[in-house]
């Protein structure tokens, strides 16, 4: 039966899964510095996951957005001020990561990572004041203070914790494909601004091929 109880457990399980993914993802990023025996399989796993990373990041953002809307619209948990700032970070990600995944456009990282990093900072602070309300202020808003905890699963899984997990896993996923390089080994992030002539040559510019994921 779908109710706030089952949904909070569902999203807690997903958050735990994502936490596990974050640990594995960070290990994949560190793999070149790990001993051969561990590093090699991690690199192979990374090579397998990296082409799917934007789809996976989009999945995280979409599920988080759905969860956020479920808890506010169906379960009627009122979003507090800090919830709103986290929503501002997460909701656009569900859209732009979806478009980028469809276009295989790794360039989306320039836009998505700042959103996710800022969101994770807000989530961290929100989670902190859930445990230490005195850091926020001395009083509670009469309607919906940010220190009000709607549910705390397994002793630590609250809504800002889940949001933090979502943001961090998006950052880790987007880091997996590594830095795109051109043939000379230079980072290709600074490209010349296209001139009008170039635009005429290519009236509908596709995704930047330098940033494209391998098919």
């Amino acid at each position: 039966m779908i109710n706030a109880d089952s949904m909070s457990l569902f999203f807690s399980l997903l958050a735990a899964l994502a936490d596990l993914g974050i640990v594995v993802g960070v290990l994949m990023l560190l793999a070149p510095r790990l001993p051969e025996g561990i590093g090699r399989p991690l690199l192979e796993l990374r090579a397998l996951v990296a082409p799917a990373s934007i789809w996976l990041a989009w999945l995280v953002a979409a599920v988080a957005t759905f969860g956020s809307l479920y808890f506010s619209e169906a379960a009627h948990f009122l979003p507090c001020k800090m919830c709103w700032f986290q929503r501002i970070g997460m909701y656009p990600l569900a859209l732009i990561l979806g478009i980028a995944a469809f276009r295989r456009d790794l360039g989306v990282r320039v836009y998505a990572v700042p959103l996710a990093v800022l969101g994770s900072i807000v989530s961290s602070y929100h989670y902190l004041i859930e445990w230490f309300p005195q850091f926020e202020s001395g009083s509670c808003d009469p309607t919906v203070p940010c220190t009000l905890i709607w549910f705390r699963r397994l002793g630590f899984m609250t809504l800002p914790y889940m949001a933090l997990t979502g943001f961090v896993s998006i950052v880790v996923l987007l880091a997996l494909p590594g830095r795109p390089r051109d043939d000379s080994g230079q980072e290709s992030s600074s490209r010349p601004i296209p001139t009008g002539e170039n635009l005429n040559d290519d009236p509908v510019p596709g995704p930047d091929p330098e940033h494209q994921l391998t098919r």
């Binding site: 070149p32 690199l43 192979e44 990374r46 090579a47 397998l48 990296a50 082409p51 494909p177 590594g178 795109p180 390089r181 391998t214």
Partner: peptide, 10 residues
Amino acid sequence: RFEIPDPKAS
């Protein structure tokens, strides 16, 4: 493009 094994290889 990456300092990791070629995804196509997998």
